[in-house]
């Protein structure tokens, strides 16, 4: 992962597309055996999957938060996870970069493969995994440091010391996060002085700076005003050209606007997943229809 420049998404995507396709195929084949509804349409169209989740169950102590979730997420695509509070969509998201490891007495069953690599195998280096799978949190959480130091943090802990290399990474990350023009003259100012929307875009830039292939977003706009939300949504649509994005959202209009496919979670299970337009106009399950229609949740 470290051999290509962490801030060259174009190169990165090329590397992934002619990358370990053979390994991707070896991912579990029997994905659909549980539930006929669980299928990612883009994958069915013959696209290789970037993330393959098989029979994933997750427990907080004795409480089961996820039950037998199977899903295929195609590369350079936006997948929205929707569902009522407590349905397990955020827990699912945090399984993909193993942030749930931090929770005491939690337990995972099943597997997640990213580009064919089993991320829960003992050989997997969690630190490496998290560089490949970036995350943006619900509440923006910039470090109490300068804008520059925030974005440069990931590359720095990865061992990049050269000032010019860091400057390049910071500039292009901020540029990709549509923040460069607003902050280029005050990179040394504290990140905490930025507005809420800017802080969230800074967090996106910070996540991009490690050169990830996958970007996980946990309700990234839920604390923002409509204008800032619109900017984040535009950004998601731009970023999917280079990154595989999984976004949790409470807002169904947002899911409809930004995503290519949508997964509906309910009570820890993946109820239905299909192309976004299909899911919203023609849901196969009564539960999905009720949720989308605003009858509960």
């Amino acid at each position: 992962m470290t051999d290509h420049h962490p801030n060259a998404p174009l190169e990165l995507t090329r590397a992934t597309s002619n990358g370990p396709l053979a390994e991707q195929v070896q991912a579990p084949e029997d994905l659909d055996r549980h539930d006929g509804n669980v299928a990612a349409p883009a994958v069915e169209r013959g696209q290789a999957s970037m993330i393959t989740v098989s029979d994933l169950s997750f427990y907080y102590g004795a409480v089961q938060a996820l039950t037998d979730v199977s899903m295929r997420i195609p590369p350079r695509n936006v997948t929205a996870l929707i569902g009522p509070s407590g349905c397990g969509k955020s827990t699912f998201l945090r399984c993909i970069n193993r942030m749930n490891d931090l929770i005491e007495e939690s337990r995972v069953e099943g597997s997640i493969h990213i580009e064919g690599q089993d991320i829960y195998s003992p050989q997997t280096d969690v630190v490496e995994l998290r560089k490949r799978v970036g995350m943006v949190f619900q509440k923006s959480n910039p470090f109490p440091k300068s804008i520059f130091d925030n974005v440069a943090y990931g590359p720095r802990v990865a061992g990049i010391r050269s000032r010019t290399a860091l400057e390049e990474i910071v500039e292009s990350s901020l540029f990709q996060a549509a923040l460069w023009d607003e902050v280029k003259d005050r990179l040394d100012a504290s990140a905490l002085k930025l507005s809420g929307g800017q802080q969230q875009r800074l967090c996106i830039a910070r996540a991009l700076a490690t050169g990830p292939e996958v970007l996980l977003m946990d309700e990234p706009a839920s604390a923002l005003d409509p204008a800032s939300t619109a900017r984040i949504e535009d950004l998601v649509s731009e970023l999917k050209e280079h990154y595989t994005i999984v976004i949790v959202t409470h807002n169904m209009h947002q899911a409809a606007r930004v995503s290519d496919q949508t997964a509906f979670f309910f009570e820890g299970r993946l109820f239905e997943m299909s192309e976004t337009a299909e899911l919203f106009t023609n849901p196969k399950q009564k539960k999905t229809e009720d949720y989308i229609g605003g009858r509960f949740g």
């Binding site: 931090l102 998290r130 970036g134 949190f137 470090f143 943090y153 910070r206």
Partner: peptide, 26 residues
Amino acid sequence: PDSIRHASLALGATRWQTIQHQVLPA
């Protein structure tokens, strides 16, 4: 706050790097 630890860990920092660069200075 834990959000700072999580932000650091999610960027691929080790536990010690998180303590050294974020938690201790704060």
